[in-house]
Simulated scan of single mutants.
Amino acid sequence: MARRELGVVLRGDHPAARDGGAVRLRDLDGASLVIFPRAMAPRLYDHMLLICRDEGLLPGSIRHARNPHFVHGLVLAGRGVHLNEPPATPLPDGLVWRPLEGAALAWQTSVVWVPTRHNEAIVAFVEAVSEGLAAAGHRLAPDVQRGRRPA
């Protein structure tokens, strides 16, 4: 299991962006949410909205966008906030990324295999995937680091 916490992309003048610290989802209550179209990943989409609701964020509206430039344009235009991982490249002027308090939302990746079929190919696969995910900022569960088989 690997996990990468999500944060929020906001306009720099948004009240939640001002102090530079973590943002509580409930502090974004009523804001429009810019999110990928549900058809791309229905279960993830529903899960994200459920976590938002449980953490006190009921979006005023939902705008669908998947192209990062379009997403950033919508946020810059004041049309919403966007939940995503830390940016790999600098955001456009006027936008900031802030972590979410409590790490309620995260991208999670996991792999399952039949224990009786554990072999060197699986060990090599786990090591390669673990290295790639760690390099991308995911935190790895201790029992899968360096290809160790979970207990």
Rank of each mutant, 00 (worst) to 15 (best):
E101S: 12
E127S: 01
F125N: 11
P115W: 04
R63P: 02
N84H: 11
A121T: 12
V71Q: 10
T89V: 11
L76T: 05
R117S: 13
R79Q: 15
G94V: 09
N84D: 14
H64L: 07
G60E: 07
I122R: 15
E120A: 15
G73T: 02
N84A: 14
A124F: 02
R117Y: 11
R66M: 09
P87M: 00
S61E: 13
L76D: 09
P115A: 08
I122F: 13
P86Q: 02
T116G: 10
E85G: 07
L83M: 09
R117Q: 15
E120W: 07
P68D: 03
G78L: 01
F70K: 07
P68F: 02
L100G: 04
E101D: 13
V96H: 07
G102R: 02
R63L: 11
A103P: 01
F125T: 12
V126S: 12
A77F: 06
A121W: 12
A106N: 05
F125M: 13
H64R: 08
V96Y: 08
N119D: 15
V96G: 07
E120I: 08
E85A: 13
G132T: 12
H82N: 11
V112G: 05
P86C: 02
L76S: 12
W107F: 13
L76I: 07
L91W: 09
R66L: 04
V126R: 14
V81C: 08
P115V: 03
A88T: 10
A124H: 12
L105K: 04
A88D: 14
G78T: 03
H118E: 15
P99K: 05
I62W: 03
L76Y: 08
G73Y: 01
E101Y: 02
P87E: 02
A77K: 14
S110T: 09
A77Q: 15
G94K: 05
R79V: 03
H64D: 10
H118T: 13
V114L: 07
N84L: 04
P86T: 06
L100F: 01
G94M: 07
H118F: 14
A106G: 06
A106L: 04
R63E: 10
H64S: 14
H72C: 03
P87Y: 00
E131Q: 14
L76P: 01
D93K: 13
V112C: 06
L105V: 12
P87I: 00
A121G: 13
V123A: 14
A124E: 13
L83S: 04
V123I: 15
R98M: 06
W97H: 10
V114T: 02
L95S: 03
P87V: 00
P68Y: 01
R117W: 12
P115I: 02
P87C: 00
L74D: 03
D93G: 14
W113G: 09
A106Q: 04
R63M: 05
I62P: 10
W107P: 00
F70D: 05
P90Q: 09
L95P: 02
L91I: 11
T109P: 00
F70H: 09
R79G: 07
W97Q: 05
D93E: 15
V111S: 06
E127V: 12
H64M: 06
A65P: 01
G102Y: 04
P68V: 01
G102I: 03
E127Y: 01
G80R: 00
F125Y: 15
R117H: 15
P90V: 02
P99H: 04
H72I: 00
N119Q: 06
R63T: 12
L74H: 06
R66P: 00
S110H: 10
G102W: 03
S61W: 03
P99L: 06
P115F: 00
